[in-house]
Design a binder for these strands. Sequence first.
RNA 1: GCCAGAGUGACGAAAUUGGUAUACGUACUCGACUCAAAAUCGAGCGUCGAAAGACAUGAGGGUUCGACUCCCUCCUCUGGCACCA
Length: 956
Amino acid sequence: MKKPQVPYNHLSIESKWQKVWEDTSAYKALDNSDKPKFYSLIEFPFPSGSGLHTGHIRSNVAMDIISRKRRSEGYNVLFPIGWDAFGLPTENYAIKTGIHPIEATKQNTDTFRRQLKTLGFSFDWSREVNTSDPEYYKWTQWIFLQMYKKGLAYKHKMAINWCPKDKIGLANEEVIDGKCERCGTQVEKREKEQWMLAITKYADRLDKDLDTVDYLERIKIQQRNWIGKSEGSEIEFKVSVGEKNINVFTTRADTLFGVTYVVLSPEHSLVSEWKEKITNKKEIEDYIASVKSRTEIDRTSEGKEKTGVELKGIHAFHPITNEEIPIWIADYVLASYGTGAVMAVPAHDERDNEFAQKFNLRIKEVIEPLLIGERGADAVKEDQPFIERQVAAVVVKHWEKEEYLVIKWTKSDWVGFVTGGIDKNEDVATAALREVEEETGYTDLEVANIADRKVHAKFYQLLKKENRFAHYQPVLIHLKSGARKEVDSGELAIHTTEWISKDKIEAILAGNSMRHILWSLIQPEKPLTDDGLLKNSDVFSGMSSDEARKAITEAAGGKMVTTFKLRDWIFSRQRYWGEPIPMIHCKKCGWIPVPEKDLPVTLPLVAKYQPTDSGESPLAAISEWVNVKCPTCDSDAKRETDTMPNWAGSSWYFLRYTDPHNKNAFAGVDKLNHWTPVDWYNGGMEHTTLHLLYSRFWHKFLFDIGLVPTAEPYKKRTSHGLILAEGGVKMSKSIGNVINPDEIVENMGADTLRLYEMFMGPFDQPIPWSTDNIVGSRRFIERVWNTHYKVSNEAQVGSKVESMLHKTIMKVGEDIESMSFNTAVSSLMILLNTLEKEEAVSKEVFETFLKLLAPFIPHVTEEIWSELGNKESIHSQRWPQYDKLKTIDSVITIAVQINGKTRTTVEIEPGNTEEIVTKKALEIPEISKWMEGKNVRRIVFVKDKIINIIVDLKTE
RNA sequence: GCCAGAGUGACGAAAUUGGUAUACGUACUCGACUCAAAAUCGAGCGUCGAAAGACAUGAGGGUUCGACUCCCUCCUCUGGCACCA
């Protein structure tokens, strides 16, 4: 009996199944289950007033697909959702409208919840959390108190980044180009007492433990850069006055003999200590004042022109030579990095060089280039000794043009200048002149320059078969005319000469010691910042930078140290809509934590949310809230009125999901043991240095005090690319190019939107939205729908369909794991194109196809599945398995090439030998046509791929 | 400046242990159906060329029987960092 065909109706199908799934708690995660667990996580959204956007959907669909696949594979899956509800936009909305943030948050979360539900995500809705719920932030406060107890939370007066518009202190991470991350206003510096979290104490582990997790490489790199680990030395310089030395941090201890001055940051404590001994005190004070008055922006907008003043009347001593060394202060040295002081080596550091040029300070070279052959023909042979050679390397300049003579060796691909050993009784110039005449024949020569910087190279000499350690002495020779005598025929056989223009020569000499030789002659003033070989460094001369770093640090009485760019986390915000920091200040006792039994410290209702210009939060105005008794001595005390940044609640929310209703702990030990760590976490790249780093820090702290079972919170972290507006620009409310998902869901259906977002392009790349292209996804779903009417129990399964089905099972499975959703969808489209051509489609084949499709478009597949007579949900079916043997085609197409160009193809069974394929290929008329008058020189055969016939013209 | 990522038809894109470049989708053209249109279905669709063929993956070189894929130099775009010693 044939069923009447009805058109695909997304509205009724989607709402029908959403209700069924909700009524049956289809996606509830079980705390007790024999199945292996899988915890998949998306970043919980901030419920803004503008509702869900396309970017949320991209990440959510991806993790929904993975969660659904894992359920089908037999896992007990936790895929939770909640709200990161504290934050400035809600507070600013409250200021504008007078609607309380609690009320606004409720409205917004209602909207988000409704929108998320219409998209059919398989969240376990029973575990919803909300960071602004006192039952939740009680535990945020509690964790803060544990950090306080361990000395990780402290109050510190410091210059903070102050946004005058938002009236709020910002963490370094929230300042972009000197502007407020949220509103774009110029950030000012303000001195304020702030709560700080000592994330720097975890810097080393946050860096090192990245080796233990499976994050996208670019995420690791970005975190590492942000943490900014740097290994170097601390070395002390004695000073002509007082007991205290200048301690500098450097990564280039090997350049210690090149130090010509030292620099202190303007804020350095020694500057004020020496005040009375400085003879140009006024000048120094003026400079420090001028630095302070300038904002960060002024400092960068001046084109980074270096400024600074010499400290007169005091000098330092070189730690090894005891030479007198001038002391400067300059703001290119940062107080907050390293020791706030540097040893300046202008010959080998760009900044020091620029500074020294400007103030005419001495530049002393102590490093010469050293190149080591690492790959290719000149790679150093490990087990062979080095033969040292003194060599003249001669750059010959044309008599008229800006061109230089290069030598091309016929027997290798080596290109360079004229070089030749310096004989025992010969000086460099004589050797250079002799070599040029011998090798090139030019006779009208004049030595123009001999560089005082040698270039060293270790390499394998192919002709002599030995490791060489060559010391090149660069010499520049000008030709006065083109006069040339005959070159010895032996020389000619080895190499040719060629004139190369100045702008092309760098490309030709890339990665070659010859390039350094040229630089040494034509731009010797450029600082050499690479590692190399030491000179002018007493007993250390001749050492490589690597060896010298340690040796010189020891000789100077210094020590090897590690420093980080990462700074402690500014944890105070002077706003209303955040977790109150649970601290009380008593005049007698100082800062006292709120007793744990009194948690949560709840936000009081206020009439005005407007922050004050004084920088205090609106909470400061609520005297009945602020004024309390000291928990220790019972005298009058005041609450801390700062609140936490919204990164606080999101630093541990994934732990709460495991046990969201626990009243006695942030989560029960058994639940944490069962569910954590998160197996797969997908989110935006913008959170790499903020949320992701902060939450790793909190997690490590909780691990250290024995409250979570693992040192790392997330096993695997991936990232989706941004969805841009049509035309490739960012979506933004102000431009008005934001796509409203509600409309798409209404008109096209949630399945279409989900499918389109997966099909639109590579998941990890940014991609422009295209409303035109959505129809392709919609049509595909309609064709799936229509094809289901052709399903029949009696339909035969051809071998072509069978092999294609198994290939698709393999491809879709692999592509989901690698998040190549676009190609997974395309392979499903290809399969459907084939099925559509069949008279009838086998039920088994079509049901497998539906199962592969189900994670992408859960509603319509569920409907068809049930139409086909199935009683259980398609989403609880076992994930299809493929048979490797069935993925192999019975006939394959081999490309037939002639001289590397594909001329035709030949159909043949897989696994055939070269002889058979060659014979078959040569029988093809199109090929024999090409073979006429040609000799077969060689055949290249790649099994089951190509056959390439190499021919040349018959010569007889 | 430094660190990532990207550059392929009209458009979104596919193909990388080197092996038939442009799969899949969109747009477009033609045809079928229709009084007509939409929808749907079928055919075509890199450039030049009548064809044979030649040329095409940001540019230029190189390695190779063969290069989107590997090497070198360079350009453009996106994101991040930026006086970090």
